[in-house]
């Protein structure tokens, strides 16, 4: 997953729900130096019996915001959605010749 264009990640999930697996896997895909490089990561864990669905809010460097309902997606779909925009940004960066 391309994470260098992410600036803000907000996660909310209940670890005891089997549908929150993709939320936890998303956290494990973030590289170790992300926080040092300025990415804001906030993960909120819900209590065990809450029925609230897992959700993910992303902000990209160009200001685009993305809200994903993680409880209905597999981690591969989440990666696809994030990468689709990240690749656009990467291409723009390349064309600008930085």
């Amino acid at each position: 997953m391309i994470t260098r264009f992410l600036t803000d990640v907000r996660l909310k999930f209940n670890p005891f729900s089997p549908r929150s697996k993709s939320a936890r896997l998303f956290l494990s895909l973030i590289p170790p130096s992300a926080r040092v490089d300025g990415m804001k990561i906030e993960s909120k864990m819900l209590p065990r019996h809450s029925k609230e669905p897992a959700s993910l809010a992303l902000k990209f460097k160009d200001g685009k915001e993305m809200d994903l309902e993680l409880d209905k997606m597999r981690i591969t779909e989440v990666m696809e959605r994030v990468d689709r925009h990240s690749r656009l940004l990467a291409r723009k960066e390349e064309l600008l010749g930085n």
Binding site: L27, M45, R48
Partner: peptide, 23 residues
């Protein structure tokens, strides 16, 4: 501190029973 930010307590198993963070 940066290590602790990446470590999340998920749950506890106490004598066969499972509790969450509050437990």
């Amino acid at each position: 501190q940066s290590g602790l930010q990446k470590l999340m307590l998920l749950g506890v198993r106490v004598e066969g029973k499972v509790f969450d963070q509050e437990g």
